[in-house]
Design a protein around this nucleic acid. Sequence first.
DNA 1: AGCGGATGTTTCACTAGTAAAATAACCATC
DNA 2: GATGGTTATTTTACTAGTGAAACATCCGCT
Lengths: 191, 191
Amino acid sequence: MTRGAYDQSVGGVEPAGIDRKGGQVEDAVAVALRQWRQVLPDADLDAIAVIGRLNRCAALLQQATDAPLGRAGVNRAEYDLLCALLRVGGELTPGRLARETFASGAAVTKRVRRLEQLGLVSRRVDERDRRVAHLSLTERGREFVLELVPEQLAYENALLAGLAPGRERELAGLLGELLLMLEGRLGGLIG
Amino acid sequence: MTRGAYDQSVGGVEPAGIDRKGGQVEDAVAVALRQWRQVLPDADLDAIAVIGRLNRCAALLQQATDAPLGRAGVNRAEYDLLCALLRVGGELTPGRLARETFASGAAVTKRVRRLEQLGLVSRRVDERDRRVAHLSLTERGREFVLELVPEQLAYENALLAGLAPGRERELAGLLGELLLMLEGRLGGLIG
DNA sequence: AGCGGATGTTTCACTAGTAAAATAACCATC
DNA sequence: GATGGTTATTTTACTAGTGAAACATCCGCT
């Protein structure tokens, strides 16, 4: 990334990205935290260290993991839907699928429509309650996702390969702890 | 969440959410991992344990942290933009602001337009290069964000309060490690 | 049998984002 | 001082999501 016509830097501000401070490499959030401490020396910034990094990691990983899916012709949301159907190993109703993939009903309707058109998902109406639909992978859908999943898993593992296995397990554990807490808390404490 | 007309559960499938297995509470991703292991016993699922939880935590936190911002009348993206201007303590060009907030130029244009209309951000044209704009907080914008930030920080800290301080620091450290790796890697390895 | 409230799914109107084209200004070189 | 290539920003056309309303059906009750 080359600088513009003349350098706009003012007062030690550096562009976002990887940066160094005293020879030590810092991530983008660490840089932001340093700036915050100068402007608000008394603020408690611990939450940013976690939440900021979490958001940033999620965004980067999302972008990265979209690449192989894009080549297969689906987006992450559609992949997640197909995975949910594979995982449970049977049929799911749209509502259940929405809960399973943490999406809105409207989003599921749209995704299922496209996946049906692609011939990867099929629908059947419940005999007892004609409101409810049962969705499942078609044979082609099953083949498609069974081929895609290992590829995707390998790719995602490779993305994390720079992290020592012990550190990765540690991280998974801590994230599980946090997630469990958030899932419990955010029912009642959202206001 | 009450069940529908009749229980659709098939083969031990449980609705997404907090769940138990042998008296032990599991997060939603742990449940999904158990399902995966039944369908693909040989797959290496470590990446899901990290990436899945990361995405889910980010989504839940995003939803939760939007609440106080919504009350103040801005969304997270606009808040981030205001914060970037506060953090650097001076002016920023749109391009720089885009890099600083990890957004596209087009997104910044839209957000700045709204924040200008709200009277929180002002713009001045560079004298040397009339292509570039310099954006800064207005007095009102500065007051607004200086009042909002501590409130938001307190709220975010409260969200993480269930995590022991040591665990939170550990998590921040590990996420920093991961983020640094991703920032370094994703320049060259995205294909 | 039929009314009223509840539930599962889809549609609708709208929002917020993106990539790529368009616009505007700059600079080096001829 | 015109030209061509480059950079900063905005506009445009489009996509994917959302919440709320609409629709379709169910069940309990009288």
